[in-house]
Design a protein around this nucleic acid. Structure first.
Length: 756
DNA sequence: ATCAAGGCTTTTTTT
DNA sequence: AAGCCTTGAT
């Protein structure tokens, strides 16, 4: 095949080996995605039916992109027939299809982390256990770990080692909580994230015909990011591949960063054992980064003991050294990085999309967000509080959930008294007790209060009745209306829309909330219009719980600086990377410095971060930052020391006469005028792109500037325009600043003030 | 049942 | 700093 010529020798060999067990160890930036894509295209060219291909990716976005690339390679619509997606999304669909086997409704709800914790909290309270000892997050972690290792609630209770562990940690009731949690989920017709894998295993274990069906269907299986699969995932793959053994796993042990989620490097070793005749391919040539970056990253990862031998190298140019920047505070770090980005982008706005700011924890995003906003650089925050986790969105989604699955307890609790309808805590406590006594769901009790002799006043019963009737009416419309029409109706008649509308004049955040709901409805409209069938509310809700911001469609303007955690940057690459917060106790995290394996994972994380960069990488740290409201001093991260110093370029910007800290601050704290920039501190939303101040390009400012005008710039101070070029949004000005020399700025971003 | 105020805890990363 | 929970007044 001609396109195979676009691969190097080792890549091509890996791509052509489509039969039998195959393992590809792919170093960072070695063209792994390319190999996978070409491999699948090649398979189809060789006559493999796309229906027989299962390709498991790490994100849904990766799946989408890969499908597109394959379509591009082979033409036609065949690529659509490949089953491609994350473990969670692929198997949630399979579970829905076979739900009856397991006693679940096919429209089962997927509980997200919040739902799970809230349910656990209730259970702990109902059992009169001390929630200081049984912290929901801790209990969740324990249950999650059990499920990922395929230990059921019953098996948990019978496992001597586990029980001994729990006893010695003074948490003997964990087994009982696990069991209660499982039954509550089951009654609510809900699965949590871990159940999607756990129950798939149950399905394949207990129903040989189902197993056989999928073994026949998925004759060719590919698993990306294999180093980050856990035991439950490993076993699913193993079972499905057991007949044909056309299984290809791709991974890099040096990039294993999800052990907190049960990911197990052992899976790579298991693979060798399960398929002794497997073929191994190593991709070691890096096409992504400069020599400096590749070698710096190699020098860091060499500190890890646990690793598979491999040597990543590149033919790319040497490139710049990695800059190391020290700042005094976290806020200053934000300003300095924003500043550097500003300098880097001068004269070429298109470069924003080439830049990423990566951090260890989500909350670090704030200082960068504020600083970028202040100097008008467009940005987008990925992860953190996603669109779907916002309160107003979850509220509306809770009505949707109830309308497809009224047994969904978490959804019920969320909205039974929102908007207020006089159903308070005490009434709900009675409902819970009653439901538990009769072994039924809360919904059953609410819709038949007399049958379960619910001890509440007739007035409250009426309120329950009204609520239940409303939900039932929504439920009945499920087969008649499409997602948008029903969603819209629910938003209206539930009172949510009115509630939010009434609060709109309270402030900016309230307006935003209303807009978010509008946005969700707009998305549903698009969804409903995009297809003829399968466009009901239930269809829409099917994998909403599995969506992340990265999966959102309809990106109008993609030229922004990306902000995200290192974890979510996995698989991505940027010409310019700013790696921030390189401080002890932050990165490596304080939570992960107690054992060698924890620390090694942090180091791998650092390795992942460095290898995202193609051309330049800048590392920064602050001497002090706010931690839980109080100023904490911090030491530079040990990881900086671990990089061979010959790849580093230390820069100290908080000192030096020309540009003192005070001066910088005074520049930044000048009040800004116009548009969105007067509003600081807004939380990111679906369109958290810091919208460009169109007013600047459209009207007054940019159009009215002339050569010779005296202007003032937020950072460079006063200057004179010597040249104007470009049109509209791309209009640039060359300006002479007495203190900074000649600069080219884009008027749209520059926020220039005209001086008389 | 609702609301405001004040106290307390929070300590990673994600499907 | 921010979110969550308890408390006490209405």
């Amino acid at each position: 095949m001609s396109y195979l010529n676009e691969l190097n020798d080792s890549q091509r060999l890996a791509a052509e080996n489509i039969n039998g067990p195959t393992m590809i160890i792919a170093g960072a930036g070695s063209g792994k995605t390319r190999v996978l894509t070409y491999r699948i295209a090649h398979m189809i060219e060789q006559g493999v039916d796309p229906f027989n291909i299962l390709s498991l990716t790490f994100t849904n976005k990766a799946a989408k992109e890969m499908t597109e690339r394959i379509s591009h390679l082979i033409g036609g619509g065949e690529a659509k027939n490949i089953t491609m997606g994350t473990f969670h999304s692929v198997f949630s669909r399979i579970l829905r299809y076979n739900a009856d086997r397991l006693g679940y409704p096919s429209n089962f709800t997927i509980y997200d982390t919040q739902d799970t914790k809230s349910l656990l909290k209730d259970i702990i309270k109902e059992q009169n256990l001390d929630d200081k000892i049984y912290k929901p997050s801790m209990v969740y972690a324990r249950i999650s770990a059990a499920k990922n290792n395929l230990i059921s609630a019953d098996a948990y209770a019978q496992n001597k080692d586990i029980i001994a562990e729990d006893n010695s940690s003074k948490r003997p009731e964990l087994a009982r909580i696990y069991k209660l949690y499982t039954t509550r989920c089951f009654k609510a017709g809900a699965m949590d994230f871990d159940d999607l894998l756990f129950q798939t295993n149950v399905l394949l274990r207990d129903f040989p015909d189902v197993l056989n069906y999928y073994q026949q269907k998925f004759r060719y299986i590919l698993v990306d990011e294999y180093q980050d699969t856990n035991y439950a995932q490993y076993l699913i793959v193993k079972k499905l591949a057991a007949v044909y053994e056309n299984i290809c796993v791709v991974g890099d042990d040096a990039q294993s960063i999800y052990s907190f989620r049960g990911a197990n490097i052992q899976n790579i070793l298991n693979f060798r054992k399960d398929y002794p005749e497997f073929k191994l391919f190593k991709l070691e040539q890096n096409y992504r980064s400069t020599k400096n970056i590749v070698e710096a990253a190699n020098s860091v990862i060499a500190n890890n003991k646990d690793q598979i031998k491999k040597s990543v190298w590149t033919e790319n140019t040497e490139g710049q050294k990695i800059k190391v920047v020290r700042t005094l505070t976290d806020n200053e770090e934000g300003k300095v990085v924003a500043n550097k980005i500003f300098d880097l982008c001068h004269g070429q706005a298109s470069i924003f999309k080439d830049i990423a700011i990566l951090y260890r924890t989500n909350k670090q995003s704030r200082s960068f967000e504020e600083a970028l906003r202040k100097i008008n650089i467009p940005y987008k925050i990925f992860g953190g509080l996603s669109f779907y986790q916002r309160k107003e969105i979850k509220d509306l989604l809770a009505y949707f959930r109830l309308s497809t699955n009224p047994n969904d307890e978490e959804a019920l609790k969320r909205v039974i008294n929102y908007p207020k309808r006089g159903i308070g805590k005490t009434s709900m406590e009675h409902v819970v007790i009653c439901a538990n006594q009769h072994g039924t769901s809360m919904w059953e009790v609410i819709s038949n209060p007399q049958q379960y002799s619910l001890p509440v006043s007739p007035a409250t019963r009426t309120k329950f009745y009204e609520f239940a009737t409303m939900i039932q009416s929504f439920n009945a419309l499920n087969n008649q209306l499409n997602a948008f029409d029903l969603g819209n109706q629910i938003a209206k008649s539930s009172g949510i829309l009115k509630e939010l509308y009434n609060e709109k004049d309270k402030g900016v955040e309230e307006v935003e909330r209303y807009q978010n709901v509008e946005e969700l409805l707009a998305g549903m409209k698009e969804f409903s219009a995009s297809k003829e069938e399968d466009n009901s509310l239930a269809d829409f809700m099917m994998d909403v719980a599995l969506l992340t911001d990265a999966d959102l469609t309809g990106e109008e303007d993609t030229n922004y600086v990306s902000l995200m955690t290192i974890h979510s940057s996995k698989g991505l690459e940027y010409p310019h990377v700013y790696l921030v917060g390189l401080e002890e106790n932050l990165f490596p995290s304080q939570m992960a410095i107690n054992t060698r394996s924890e620390l090694e994972e942090e180091r791998r994380l650092f390795y992942v971060a460095l290898t995202r960069a193609k051309e330049t990488c800048t590392i920064s740290y602050a001497n002090s930052r706010f931690v839980f409201g109080s100023l904490t001093t911090s030491e530079p991260s040990r990881f900086i020391d671990e990089i061979d110093q010959k790849y580093l370029d230390f820069e100290n910007i908080s000192r030096g006469p020309g540009r003192s800290l005070n001066q910088m601050n005074s520049n930044y704290e000048r009040p800004f005028t116009g548009g969105l920039n007067t509003r600081l501190n807004t939380k990111p939303n679906l369109r958290s792109i810091n919208e460009l101040p169109k007013s600047n390009s459209g009207q007054n400012t940019s159009l009215s500037f002339m050569v010779g005008d005296n202007v003032e710039h937020d950072r460079f101070g006063k200057g004179k325009i010597t040249k104007l070029e470009g049109v509209d949004a791309d209009k640039k000005a060359t300006i002479f600043f007495p203190h900074h020399g000649i600069k080219v700025v884009i008027l749209r971003f520059a926020n220039l003030k005209k001086l008389d």
